[in-house]
Simulated scan of single mutants.
Amino acid sequence: MLKEFQEFISRGTVVDLAVGVIVGAAFNSLVSAITTYLLNPLIGLIIGQIDLSDMKFQVLGATFLIGDLINAIINFLIIMFVVFLIVKMMNRMRRDGSRSKFDQNGDEIPDPQTEYLQQIRDLLRYQQRNDHNRRY
Protein backbone atom coordinates (compact mmCIF):
# COMPACT_ATOMS: atom_id res chain seq x y z
CA MET A 1 0.00 0.00 0.00
CA LEU A 2 2.87 2.35 0.78
CA LYS A 3 4.42 1.60 -2.61
CA GLU A 4 1.12 2.37 -4.38
CA PHE A 5 0.88 5.65 -2.49
CA GLN A 6 4.45 6.51 -3.48
CA GLU A 7 3.65 5.78 -7.15
CA PHE A 8 0.51 7.89 -6.92
CA ILE A 9 2.38 10.84 -5.42
CA SER A 10 5.27 10.55 -7.86
CA ARG A 11 2.97 10.87 -10.87
CA GLY A 12 3.34 14.21 -12.58
CA THR A 13 -0.34 15.07 -12.45
CA VAL A 14 -0.57 14.97 -8.65
CA VAL A 15 2.58 17.02 -8.20
CA ASP A 16 1.46 19.47 -10.90
CA LEU A 17 -1.90 19.85 -9.19
CA ALA A 18 -0.28 20.52 -5.83
CA VAL A 19 2.04 23.12 -7.34
CA GLY A 20 -0.92 24.71 -9.13
CA VAL A 21 -2.92 25.01 -5.91
CA ILE A 22 0.02 26.57 -4.05
CA VAL A 23 0.81 29.00 -6.86
CA GLY A 24 -2.90 29.84 -7.20
CA ALA A 25 -3.19 30.67 -3.50
CA ALA A 26 -0.10 32.88 -3.66
CA PHE A 27 -1.40 34.55 -6.81
CA ASN A 28 -4.76 35.18 -5.14
CA SER A 29 -2.98 36.91 -2.24
CA LEU A 30 -1.02 39.05 -4.68
CA VAL A 31 -4.13 40.05 -6.65
CA SER A 32 -6.00 40.87 -3.43
CA ALA A 33 -3.14 43.10 -2.31
CA ILE A 34 -3.00 44.87 -5.69
CA THR A 35 -6.76 45.42 -5.57
CA THR A 36 -6.82 46.62 -1.96
CA TYR A 37 -3.70 48.77 -1.92
CA LEU A 38 -3.43 50.01 -5.50
CA LEU A 39 -6.68 49.82 -7.44
CA ASN A 40 -9.07 50.74 -4.62
CA PRO A 41 -7.37 54.05 -3.84
CA LEU A 42 -7.37 54.90 -7.56
CA ILE A 43 -11.07 54.06 -7.90
CA GLY A 44 -11.74 55.93 -4.65
CA LEU A 45 -10.10 59.06 -6.04
CA ILE A 46 -12.22 58.86 -9.18
CA ILE A 47 -15.56 58.40 -7.42
CA GLY A 48 -14.74 60.75 -4.53
CA GLN A 49 -14.41 58.28 -1.68
CA ILE A 50 -10.94 57.62 -0.38
CA ASP A 51 -11.53 54.10 1.04
CA LEU A 52 -13.57 51.96 -1.31
CA SER A 53 -13.79 49.04 1.12
CA ASP A 54 -15.81 51.20 3.56
CA MET A 55 -18.41 51.96 0.91
CA LYS A 56 -21.79 50.64 2.12
CA PHE A 57 -25.46 51.45 2.31
CA GLN A 58 -28.33 50.45 4.55
CA VAL A 59 -31.88 49.46 3.74
CA LEU A 60 -34.32 48.74 6.58
CA GLY A 61 -31.49 48.04 8.98
CA ALA A 62 -29.59 45.67 6.63
CA THR A 63 -26.07 46.80 5.73
CA PHE A 64 -24.77 46.10 2.22
CA LEU A 65 -20.96 46.24 1.88
CA ILE A 66 -20.62 47.44 -1.69
CA GLY A 67 -16.87 48.04 -1.32
CA ASP A 68 -16.19 44.40 -0.46
CA LEU A 69 -18.32 43.29 -3.40
CA ILE A 70 -16.41 45.59 -5.75
CA ASN A 71 -13.11 44.21 -4.38
CA ALA A 72 -14.27 40.64 -5.02
CA ILE A 73 -15.39 41.51 -8.56
CA ILE A 74 -12.07 43.21 -9.36
CA ASN A 75 -10.12 40.24 -7.94
CA PHE A 76 -12.22 37.82 -9.98
CA LEU A 77 -11.75 39.79 -13.21
CA ILE A 78 -7.98 40.06 -12.75
CA ILE A 79 -7.60 36.35 -11.97
CA MET A 80 -9.84 35.30 -14.86
CA PHE A 81 -7.90 37.53 -17.26
CA VAL A 82 -4.61 35.96 -16.18
CA VAL A 83 -6.10 32.45 -16.46
CA PHE A 84 -7.34 33.36 -19.95
CA LEU A 85 -3.83 34.48 -20.94
CA ILE A 86 -2.28 31.30 -19.54
CA VAL A 87 -4.78 29.04 -21.35
CA LYS A 88 -4.28 30.99 -24.56
CA MET A 89 -0.50 30.60 -24.27
CA MET A 90 -0.78 26.88 -23.48
CA ASN A 91 -3.08 26.32 -26.47
CA ARG A 92 -0.62 28.10 -28.73
CA MET A 93 2.27 26.01 -27.40
CA ARG A 94 0.25 22.81 -27.80
CA ARG A 95 -0.79 23.76 -31.33
CA ASP A 96 2.80 24.65 -32.30
CA GLY A 97 4.12 21.45 -30.72
CA SER A 98 1.57 19.25 -32.43
CA ARG A 99 2.37 20.38 -35.96
CA SER A 100 5.15 17.90 -36.45
CA LYS A 101 5.56 14.79 -34.34
CA PHE A 102 8.24 12.21 -34.87
CA ASP A 103 8.45 8.57 -33.86
CA GLN A 104 11.50 6.84 -32.37
CA ASN A 105 13.09 6.35 -35.80
CA GLY A 106 12.85 10.05 -36.58
CA ASP A 107 10.08 9.56 -39.14
CA GLU A 108 7.30 12.11 -39.09
CA ILE A 109 3.99 10.83 -37.73
CA PRO A 110 1.17 12.06 -39.96
CA ASP A 111 -1.66 13.99 -38.39
CA PRO A 112 -4.87 11.89 -38.64
CA GLN A 113 -6.90 14.82 -39.94
CA THR A 114 -4.30 15.67 -42.55
CA GLU A 115 -4.06 12.05 -43.60
CA TYR A 116 -7.85 11.80 -43.92
CA LEU A 117 -8.01 14.98 -46.00
CA GLN A 118 -5.26 13.69 -48.27
CA GLN A 119 -7.23 10.48 -48.82
CA ILE A 120 -10.30 12.52 -49.76
CA ARG A 121 -8.19 14.59 -52.16
CA ASP A 122 -6.75 11.48 -53.78
CA LEU A 123 -10.21 9.94 -54.14
CA LEU A 124 -11.54 13.11 -55.80
CA ARG A 125 -8.59 13.14 -58.21
CA TYR A 126 -9.22 9.48 -59.03
CA GLN A 127 -12.90 10.14 -59.68
CA GLN A 128 -12.09 13.18 -61.78
CA ARG A 129 -9.68 11.16 -63.96
CA ASN A 130 -12.26 8.40 -64.44
CA ASP A 131 -14.92 10.91 -65.42
CA HIS A 132 -12.47 12.54 -67.84
CA ASN A 133 -11.56 9.17 -69.43
CA ARG A 134 -15.22 8.20 -69.87
CA ARG A 135 -15.95 11.31 -71.86
CA TYR A 136 -13.24 10.62 -74.44
Rank of each mutant, 00 (worst) to 15 (best):
G44S: 05
V82S: 11
L39K: 00
S100Y: 11
D68S: 01
I43Y: 02
E4F: 09
D107C: 06
I73V: 08
R135H: 13
I86H: 10
S32I: 04
L124S: 11
D68R: 09
Q118F: 11
L60M: 11
F76A: 13
N40G: 05
D16G: 15
D51H: 05
Y136I: 13
M89L: 13
L69A: 05
R94I: 10
V83P: 07
Q118T: 07
L77S: 09
Y126N: 12
S10V: 02
Q49H: 09
Q127G: 15
Q119V: 12
Y37H: 13
L65M: 09
D131P: 04
D107P: 06
S98W: 07
V59F: 11
L42N: 03
M55Y: 04
R92M: 14
A26L: 01
V23G: 00
V31S: 08
I109K: 00
F76E: 05
Q127M: 15
V31A: 09
Y136Q: 11
Y37M: 10
N71D: 12
G44V: 00
L17G: 13
M89F: 14
Y116R: 11
N28V: 04
L69P: 04
D68P: 03
D51T: 01
N75K: 11
V87C: 02
N91A: 08
F84L: 12
H132P: 05
T35P: 07
I66E: 02
D68F: 03
F84V: 07
L124K: 15
H132C: 07
Q6D: 08
K3D: 08
E7G: 10
P112S: 00
R134L: 14
D54R: 05
I74Y: 00
Q104C: 06
R94F: 09
I66K: 00
D103Q: 06
L30A: 06
E115Q: 15
S100E: 09
P112E: 01
D103C: 02
M55K: 01
L2I: 10
F64C: 00
R92K: 14
L38W: 03
Y126L: 12
R129Q: 15
Y126G: 11
S29P: 00
V83D: 06
R95G: 06
I22M: 06
G97F: 03
R94W: 11
Q6P: 02
G67H: 04
R92H: 11
R99T: 08
M1A: 12
R134N: 14
S53F: 07
N133H: 13
I66Y: 08
R135L: 11
E115H: 03
G12L: 06
K101M: 13
F76H: 12
N71Q: 12
I43Q: 05
R99Y: 05
M93T: 09
L85G: 05
D107R: 10
Y37T: 07
D54Y: 01
G106C: 05
F8C: 00
L2S: 03
I22E: 05
K101F: 10
G12A: 02
I34D: 12
Y126S: 15
N71T: 09
I74S: 02
L60E: 12
P112D: 06
V59H: 03
G106L: 06
K88V: 08
Q58D: 12
L60N: 03
L117Y: 15
Y37V: 07
N28A: 04
L123A: 14
D68L: 04
R92V: 07
L65C: 02
T13L: 08
K88L: 10
S53P: 09
Q113P: 04
L42C: 01
M80K: 14
L52E: 04
